[in-house]
């Protein structure tokens, strides 16, 4: 890991943390992306386009806009992105992530950052478990199946 990517990691992380604090300050809400998605899906399925749906959707639309701003400023390049698996496993991965975060009420942002920041035992336990789960998958893919 280079000094440049270390600084970018800290700065990027600080922006993510700042966004979590701002959402709590402004709207009193937890910036958990999987929960926001689940909320948007529930609203759409019930044809309920009230303010609960709108602010969640607006936040989610902000994510790729933020990514676009950073790449427009030349601070990040999409060309260096390396996918780890093909499309079939991407689908499997997406299904597991969606199902798991809905069942476990949170993902890296909701449990890993917001939950940890408010000393939630549930979030600490969830974070440890999903970190271990991810390590298991990477180990299997890279060292057992991949043989790398």
């Amino acid at each position: 890991m280079s000094a440049h990517s270390l600084i970018m990691a800290l700065m990027g992380g600080a922006l993510i943390g700042l966004a979590c604090v701002l959402l709590l300050l402004a709207l009193g809400r937890i910036a958990g992306i999987s929960s926001l998605m689940s909320g948007v899906l529930a609203g759409l399925m019930a044809f309920n386009f009230d303010s609960h749906l709108r602010w969640r959707l607006a936040f989610l639309i902000g994510l790729p806009l933020g990514a676009l701003s950073v790449s427009a400023l030349g601070w990040s390049e999409w060309s260096h992105i390396r996918m780890q698996v093909g499309l079939p496993l991407t689908i499997v991965s997406g299904l597991l992530v969606g199902f798991g975060t809905a069942l476990g009420t949170g993902c890296t942002s909701g449990h890993g950052i917001c939950g940890m920041a408010r000393f939630s035992l549930r979030s600490l336990v969830a974070t440890i478990i999903f970190m271990v789960g991810a390590a298991v998958s990477v180990f299997i893919l890279r060292h057992i199946i991949g043989g790398a």
């Binding site: 780890q84 997406g94 597991l96 798991g100 789960g133």
Partner: peptide, 14 residues
């Protein structure tokens, strides 16, 4: 849920 999420996260990296 956390375990299923983690396993999926490790597969796709997203």
């Amino acid at each position: 849920g956390a375990l299923i999420f983690g396993l999926g996260w490790g597969i796709g990296g997203f």
